[in-house]
């Protein structure tokens, strides 16, 4: 499996080199929207020093961590997910069904998106700077990293579930944008939302927890929610796997 992944990564890189301009532009736009987030954050905090106990630096830590999770997902999986959507919709999965490899992981890892690696590295550097200012304890730093990894898995599972829905519903490609919207909306302090929304997105679909938990570890506010999001993420991964297998059963290629 590892050898196959290495080949896939090499191929992604080769493809990226074919479209160098696209790569540069995509990286630039990633940075552009991050900068817009920063400016908007700056505007908010120009009127008040803290919001629900979060100061500007905490807030920066939150949105940067959220971006870190998004970009890591994008680097590792987004190109594969886009490809998978196309393959399902055009009924082109037949070949993958005929290979002696696990098709779920093969498609999930089919391509990495090198343009996002640029933004991922940039965001990581910024986050590292922010963390040195926030001084998390070594243990909290470790939990911070763990929470980020769980976050990436969470975003992956959500997207995988949405993409696989294409087996049943066609013409709803906009569905694939939902996890991204959800994660964008979650890149804010949980407390700004009304109670019901908070509970819903901390516990049921814990997208707010996914962004808030690592940020809290970052400024030394540890939370048990980390356990919960790990559990939910595990369940979502299993769910996406079952959905994939059901989807294959449903799959009747267009002939």
């Amino acid at each position: 499996m590892f050898k196959i992944y290495r080949v896939l990564i090499t191929q992604s890189l080769a493809e990226t080199m074919t479209y160098r301009v696209t790569t540069i532009l995509t990286a630039l736009f990633g940075v552009l929207f991050y900068v817009i987030d920063l400016i908007t954050g700056g505007v908010y905090f120009s009127f008040t020093p803290t919001i629900y106990g979060w100061n500007f630096l905490d807030y920066l830590n939150l949105i940067t961590t959220a971006n870190l999770i998004s970009y890591a997902y994008q680097f590792l999986f987004v190109a594969a997910h886009e490809d998978l959507t196309d393959q399902i919709l055009s009924g082109n999965l037949d070949y993958s069904l005929l290979r002696p490899v696990n098709a779920y992981w093969f498609h999930a890892c089919y391509r990495v998106d090198f343009p996002s690696l640029v933004t991922l590295i940039l965001t990581s550097i910024i986050e590292a700077v922010i963390l040195t200012r926030l001084h998390p304890t070594p243990l909290n730093l470790l939990f911070y990293l763990m929470a980020v990894i769980v976050g990436i898995a969470f975003v992956f599972a959500l997207n995988q579930i949405m993409v696989t829905l294409a087996f049943w519903v066609d013409g709803l490609t906009a569905l694939n944008g939902i996890p991204e919207d959800l994660m964008t909306a979650s890149a804010r302090p949980a407390k700004i939302y009304p109670r019901v929304i908070q509970q819903l997105f901390l516990w049921v679909i814990p997208s707010l927890a996914i962004t808030n938990v690592p940020a809290q570890f970052g400024h030394n506010h540890p939370t048990w929610l980390l356990l919960w999001i790990t559990l939910v993420t595990g369940l979502l991964l299993i769910l996406s796997y079952i959905e994939w297998q059901r989807g294959l059963l449903k799959y009747v290629s267009a002939n």
């Binding site: 906009a174 944008g177 804010r188 700004i192």
Partner: peptide, 19 residues
Amino acid sequence: LHLLTTAINVLVTIFMWLA
């Protein structure tokens, strides 16, 4: 879904501003 996306984004911004 497009409208939903917009609605989500608007809500986020609204709650942030209210805070």
